[in-house]
């Protein structure tokens, strides 16, 4: 039922308190939060820095515009409506395709025009944002995720979370949506987390609701064979978010689009700790190592460094070359 602090420490697990004080408090300047807490701002920032994100279809800012939302949506086969200041998958409505006047969710549920309008109105009134402050609805195009991933996910786009510490990708996991998580890949809503080897992008182990898991609960597909295509580019994309935001301890959510490759979905200034469970390993040794590295190294070298040092022991033997200084 319980473990001891000693065991957790020897595994290098960091707890909430340490994350908040030692990493978020020290490396994330508060004035940078708005950049990542507002998905619209993040999107515009990414655009400036040439980082690809799902295409923006439009925004709804006032209740007055709610009546015209279907006009914005016209001609888009699939789209996602989300609150700009939402978090944890709250208030995200994924519409896979439109059939006449019916909007169809990944689960197959049909929504009418009024349902869409009510959802947008709720977003604007702050139902899903922190502290209930008024918000903006962001509408972006649906991601067509890479075919290789189809068997690993259920009714939703899997996303890849990479923790980037001072520009170094330190740990990664893939989050697979399940029936429980309703087409969204947020772990506490029941998505499955699969730890990924930083060196190769292959699966390490899986967890759901903080407990180990070897297969997908809905598709039944085993998780061990999971392998992310284009892993190197994805890591470099994640690493470059450090320069873009200036946040030292960052959670990047990425997706693999069939046509456009790796894309940045959103950034997180307070990434969760479940990634340690998915990797079966604590963040502490990796963060300690990065803290000793000099600053001003470019993204490509940082990725190379991480891939070499954070490879899991088994893989390390095959790619054994001397560590760079």
């Amino acid at each position: 039922m319980w473990t001891t602090p000693g065991k957790l420490r020897s595994k290098g697990i960091i707890g909430m308190n340490r994350r908040n004080i030692r990493y978020i408090g020290r490396y994330n300047s508060r004035k940078l939060y708005p950049l990542v807490d507002d998905k619209l701002k993040t999107k515009l920032l990414c655009h400036e820095h040439g980082i690809t994100t799902p295409a923006l279809i439009g925004t709804v800012i006032t209740q007055f515009e709610v009546k015209h939302v279907t006009k914005i949506l016209q001609g888009h086969p699939g789209f996602v409506i989300k609150p700009a200041k939402g978090s944890g998958g709250k208030g995200i409505l994924v519409i896979e395709h439109v059939d006449g006047s019916a909007y169809i969710k990944p689960s197959g549920a049909h929504l009418g025009r009024e349902d869409i309008e009510r959802h947008v109105s709720n977003i604007l009134s702050g139902l899903y944002s922190l502290g209930g402050s008024p918000d903006v609805a962001v509408i972006e195009s649906l991601i067509n995720f890479d075919d290789t991933l189809t068997q690993y996910t259920y009714e939703g786009v899997p996303d890849i979370r990479v923790i980037v510490f001072q520009g170094y990708p330190v740990m990664a996991m893939m989050r697979l949506s399940t029936a429980a998580s309703d087409g969204k890949a947020n772990l506490h809503q029941g998505a499955v987390g699969v730890g990924l080897d930083i060196a190769t992008g292959t699966a390490l182990r899986g967890v759901q609701f903080d407990r180990p898991r070897h297969d997908h609960p809905d598709t039944g597909h085993e998780l061990a064979s999971l392998r992310i295509p284009g892993w190197g580019t994805l890591l470099e994309l994640a690493a470059s978010c450090y320069e873009m935001t200036g946040l030292g301890y960052l959670g990047t959510d990425m997706v693999l689009d069939r046509d456009h490759g790796p894309m940045l979905l959103e950034l997180n200034a307070r990434p969760g700790l479940a990634i340690q469970m998915a990797n079966g390993e604590g963040l502490r040794p990796r963060l300690d190592l990065i803290e000793q590295q000099p600053e001003g190294v470019d993204a490509a070298s940082r990725v190379a460094f991480a891939r070499q040092h954070f490879a899991r022991r088994a893989e390390l033997i095959s790619s054994a070359d001397p560590a760079p200084a």
Binding site: W2, L8, K11, I13, N17, R18, I21, P212
Partner: peptide, 20 residues
């Protein structure tokens, strides 16, 4: 406010990691 150690409930939450 300066305590960086584990929380009591984390001893339960992170238990699976220590079972290898």
């Amino acid at each position: 406010g300066n305590y960086t150690g584990y929380r009591l409930l984390e001893l339960k939450r992170f238990k699976p990691v220590t079972e290898d």
